[in-house]
Design a protein around this nucleic acid. Structure first.
Length: 344
DNA sequence: GGTAGACCTGGACGC
DNA sequence: GCGTCCAGGTCTACC
């Protein structure tokens, strides 16, 4: 990016915010168009702005040694005033900078295990649409396939930034794309028609049956109504609906999958059928109420970090591709499990 | 309400 | 290099 006449911004963050901890807190930081560079602790993302795509490099001075240090954002081209506002809004959403420190403190009061490390924030995508499609690409596949699908979606359909990177494709772009094109160029398999239909719903006004992003993102909309509406969408089942809910900042439901079963068996020591284990998992995390997902997720995330080191040291093409339930099961078996790491 | 099978891709494995 | 098997969540048909 050196030598380009780009725009530089400073973005204030909550007093507890540590970028390398709070950004590298959910797998989407490893998915295109995101790129995390462990050596320099630089987070690069290609944003789709009003005037086209722009690559932004985001850094936090002092590299996590002091919480609350503002972020420096460098774009690879000059941004208009409108685009600066759009970039700020998308970065704020992606890093959840609008979640007040008091909310994180409340989580720590409910589940004190994470107070010392300060964990509490989870990253997500810059838009609700991207979160929904990323969730669909994570269903019924192993993680390396999810990584590939997102990379190919961006390369095939995403707007190109001056630096050569591609943004995540817009809903309008995917809605105009043939399902067979998605399948052949992006390897999304049978999800092709579902992704196109989802994109079409995002482009339609709510009055014509389209998705109202404002309604989904309105804190006043009841959880149950959101959950019900998500289950109506193509390609969205119980797991995906619960996952999208946490991406919307609603943490009371658990997106349980095969990885959760592994966690229930090997870490929490549950036995029995998968169905029984899932029931026990829901009961286990119910006491955390509106923070249940955070408690569940950080248990899982810490398990990964015990295996692979701190998430901020992971690289997409190596560590980032090594997560599969089967692989982790093998490693746990090799370790002898022994119930180590049981935390409650 | 519960269950079985199809849907695809890509990695692992055996030959 | 090729064929086979398997993992993964959603959807549909059926009981």
């Amino acid at each position: 990016m050196a030598g380009r006449a780009g725009t530089t911004l400073t973005i204030p963050v909550p007093a507890d915010y540590v970028m390398r901890r709070d950004l590298c807190s959910y797998g989407y930081f490893l998915l295109a168009p995101s790129h995390w560079e462990p050596a320099t602790e630089t987070y690069t993302h290609v944003l789709d702005l009003g005037g086209g795509a722009a690559t932004v490099d985001i850094t936090q001075a002092r590299r996590g040694r002091k919480a609350g240090t503002p972020l420096t954002v460098r774009a690879d081209r000059a941004l208009s005033r409108t685009e600066v506002a759009q970039a700020r809004a998308q970065i704020t959403r992606m890093l959840r900078l609008d979640e007040e420190a008091a909310v994180v403190r409340h989580f720590h009061a409910v589940d004190p295990r994470w107070k010392k490390s300060g964990r509490g924030r989870l990253m997500r995508s810059p838009t609700f649409f991207e979160d929904v499609i990323k969730t669909v690409t994570s269903c019924n596949v192993t993680w390396p396939s999810t990584v590939n699908m997102n990379r190919r979606l961006c390369e095939a359909l995403g707007a190109k930034a001056p630096g050569g990177g591609h943004a995540f494709p817009s809903a309008a772009k995917i809605a105009r794309t043939r399902a067979t094109t998605l399948r052949t160029r992006c390897s999304v398999g049978y999800r092709d028609a579902r992704i196109v239909e989802l994109a079409r719903l995002f482009t339609l006004p709510p009055s014509r049956g389209g998705i109202s992003v404002a309604w989904f993102e309105d804190p006043g909309t009841p959880d149950d109504a959101i959950h019900e509406a998500l289950l109506e969408l193509p390609g969205i089942g119980p797991y995906a609906a619960a996952n999208i809910m946490q991406l919307l900042g609603r943490y009371s439901r658990l997106p349980l999958d095969t990885e959760s079963i592994r966690h229930g068996k090997t870490i929490l020591g549950y036995t029995g059928t998968d169905r029984h284990i899932m029931k026990r998992m829901h009961e286990h995390f119910r006491p955390f109420g509106g923070h249940a997902f955070r408690s569940y997720w950080f248990e899982l995330w810490c398990f990964y970090e015990q295996k692979r080191g701190p998430a901020w040291t992971w690289e997409r093409e190596t560590t980032g591709k090594s997560f599969t339930a089967a692989l982790l099961r093998e490693e746990v078996a090799a370790d002898g499990a022994a119930g180590a790491g049981r935390r409650r």
